[in-house]
Structure formats: C-alpha cells, structure tokens
C-alpha cells in the first residue's frame, strides 16, 4: 500500500527555487552597483518632497505652452502619415509568404534598423542632418513608425490564410489585384489597430523629442526644468497627460468604429 503522499503534489521544483535564488542574488548585486542605499533614498525622498511642493500650484499661463503642444501634435500626425505610407509597401515586400527570400531579407533589415534605435537617438541624428525644429522630430518619429508598423504588418500578412490568395490567383488576377482583394481584406482590421496604436505612441514620443531640439513641447519642458520653473513643469506635465488621455480615448473610439 504505497499510497502517494500528499506532499508530492505540492513539491516545489529545485530548478524553480534555484531560479528565484539567482534572481535575489542578482537583484542585490545590481542594486549595489546602482548605488542603492537607504540613506540615499531617505535624502532623495526629502528632496522629492521639496520638489513636489514646487509643483504647486501648476502654472498654465506661460505663452509657449499651447504652441508647443500644437507642434507636438503636428509632429505626431505627420510622422504617423509618412511612417504608415512608407511601412505599407515595405511590409508587403518583407512578407515571406508573398515574396522570395532575396526581396524579404533587405526589407527586414531596414525594418529592424528602424526599430532598433529609440526615437530620441534618431532625433539626435536628424537634428544634426536637418537642424533644430519640428522637421527633425517628424523624421525621427517617421523612422520609428516605419519600424513598428512595418514589423507588425509584415507579421500580420504572414499569418493570413493562403486559400483566399489561391482562389484569387485562380481567377487570373494580377499581383496588385491579389494584394488588394486577397491580402488587404484579411489584414485591414489589424492594420487599423496598429496605426491607431502608432499614432498614440507618436503622440507620446513627440512630447519628448524636443529634449534634443527636435521640436514640440519637450524643448519647452526641458528649458523650464533647467530654469527650476517647477510650477510650469507641472503645468506642462498635466497638459501632456491630458493630451495622451484624450488621444487614448480617440484611439479606442476609432477602433470601435472600425470593428
């Protein structure tokens, strides 16, 4: 009568425990390298309290708040437009079920290159190329959009059902017709989702590329920070949060409309 003992069901695996132990060791080690200590946190929290006090009351009255926000919006819209326009042909060419390998590989490399660098890093390069201002921001976020929409759209195209493509090819459709009537209907819904998300993400990023001089509210924010103009910093931050929340509301409305 060797009944299974109860404890066996809940025996934690050795590997899991080892994993947790390693995690704890790593956290302690990394915290030490990051210079984390109690007194530093205590001191920091003290500064933080002073700092927060400087935020109140938030100031919205400075004249460069509205133009900065509008410029951020312009950057976000244009970058989403250009990014999407470039990403569509790129992702069709990068889809492995539509194109031979010698076409997809270069396209995939372009998409990966666009995705690798944070928009702010691309913005630094763009500022060097086209000078300060909104143009650099548009270029930086366009690159990011190409990477994002291109990757997701290429994956979406690769996941479509082959049968509909074959049916349309069997009618003697040209390549363009196959794309329009076989591929587009299958990816349209997801595509709208990607673009909505991309516009939202561009809106967020357009508020920071100004830190490196690429236009938008970020420059104003950074300048206010360096002037210790904390009530204006608070005002700008609240305005950005409101803008992003509005953007999210519009995004979910658009998604509902096109469901």
């Amino acid at each position: 009568m060797n009944a299974v003992t109860r404890a066996d069901f809940f025996q934690p695996s050795i590997w899991k425990r080892l994993g947790y132990a390693l995690l704890v060791v790593y956290v302690i080690y990394a915290a030490a390298t990051l210079g984390l200590s109690w007194e530093r946190i205590e001191r920091g929290v003290g500064y933080g309290a002073k700092f927060l006090a400087g935020f109140f009351p938030p100031s919205f009255t400075k004249s460069d708040l509205i133009p900065g926000l509008l410029e951020s919006l312009q950057i976000a819209f244009l970058a989403s437009l250009f990014g999407t326009l470039i990403a569509i042909p790129l992702s069709v060419l990068a889809a492995r079920n539509l194109m031979p390998a010698f076409v997809t590989w270069p396209m995939r490399v372009i998409i990966i290159l666009c995705r690798t660098f944070h928009p702010v890093i691309v913005a630094i390069i763009a500022v060097k190329a086209v000078g300060f201002g909104a143009m650099a921001g548009v270029i930086a976020l366009t690159v990011a959009s190409v990477g994002f929409v291109g990757k997701l759209l290429a994956e979406a195209i690769e996941e479509i059902s082959k049968k509909q493509i074959e049916a349309i090819r069997a009618t003697g459709a040209s390549f363009m017709n196959t794309i329009i009537f076989g591929v587009v209907p299958q990816v349209m819904n997801r595509f709208i989702g990607f673009v909505a998300y991309e516009t939202d993400s561009n809106l967020r990023h357009s508020t920071i590329v100004g830190v490196v001089g690429a236009g938008g509210i970020g420059g104003t924010l950074f300048a206010a920070f360096q002037r210790y103009d904390y009530d204006f910093v608070a005002g700008i931050s609240i305005a950005i949060i409101a803008l992003v929340m509005l953007g999210e509301a519009i995004q979910s409305y658009v998604k509902r409309v096109f469901r």
């Binding site: 920091g44 500064y47 700092f51 967020r204 830190v211 950005i240 949060i241 992003v244 929340m245």
Partner: peptide, 19 residues
C-alpha cells in the same frame, strides 16, 4: 495612464533632481 503618459526622460529628470 498617468505613469505611461509621462515619458521615461521626464521621469528621469524628476529622479535625477531627487537622487
């Protein structure tokens, strides 16, 4: 929503001022 809308760089500015 609020933590997401404030970008990493802005959080970094805050925390650099603190720590």
């Amino acid at each position: 929503v609020a933590t997401r809308s404030i970008s990493t760089l802005l959080w970094a500015l805050f925390f650099v001022a603190m720590f």
